[in-house]
Amino acid sequence: MSIAAEATEFYFPHRHLLGIEGLSRDEIVGLLDLSEQAATFSRQVAKKRDDLRGRTLINLFFESSTRTQSSFELAGKRLGADVMNMSVRSSSVQKGETLIDTAVTLNAMRPDLLVVRHHAAGAVELLAQKVGCSVINAGDGSHEHPTQALLDALTIRRHKGRIAGLIVAICGDILHSRVARSNILLLNTLGARVRVVAPSTLIAAGIERLGVEVYSSMWDGLEGADIVMMLRLQRERMSSNLVPSQREYFHFFGLDYDKLARAKPDALIMHPGPMNRGMEIDSSVADDPRSVIREQVEMGVAVRMAVLQALARHLPND
């Protein structure tokens, strides 16, 4: 089936993609199905489509990112959109312009799709209220990163054939992670059993109310897991006394073969990147045959193509 044929069947009833929260199971599955088509398409020699021909996509990144920004850029270009990248350093935000001013200014340039990353939770939603185009959250503070959760789910589904019933252990800096929040919401919606594994200093208050089991031991948390999802640990967590040292963190919370042995033999190893080898993940584990980290990057482009297509259907045509 072509993407176009699929496209006529799936209707995504939202103007923006601000988070996984608020999406129904069917909407998530619909996006994953569409992403699957995009993934197949992206492996062809001729990868250029014209779904978004004439449309303008602006990547507005207030926080630096190589991976996500280039993933959205590639997704937009494969669909035929004109893509512009704006990063915070070159913008007037540094000169004291408020987020709202920036939004209004950008809106006047009449983009069709706006991909935004910002260091403050809720900033993308605030911006979405002030512009006339579709907005995609590419990460807002510690809140959400919906396309990451979608690409993780797509990767899992391609390997396991399902999400429901799988035991997923999300390990590391849960407190600060938007990836963890979006994944918890999405995986729960699709019926997985989600565990979070971290020292108590990196667990957010009340996280169990989001429907997860909380572990402070990797060995216990990985017991019988189908999926081991590692999170990046920022070095500043050491200076703010949330963990004492890199070597202690790696010893107790870094993914090595000893801890991995507790998971199911065919457990997938995942990481949203960029990895700190030797901090949260042993270098050889990262390159293990069970690691799907590189495939996550590939699925990232597919998911972003699907999201752009789904939202583009709401764009005015005149």
Binding site: G122, D140, H143, E144, R181, G206, I207
Partner: peptide
């Protein structure tokens, strides 16, 4: 306020 809602919103809480 620290707790479930702050965690859902991704905002740092005041205990």
């Amino acid at each position: 306020n620290a707790g479930e809602i702050a965690t859902r919103l991704g905002l740092p809480g005041i205990p």
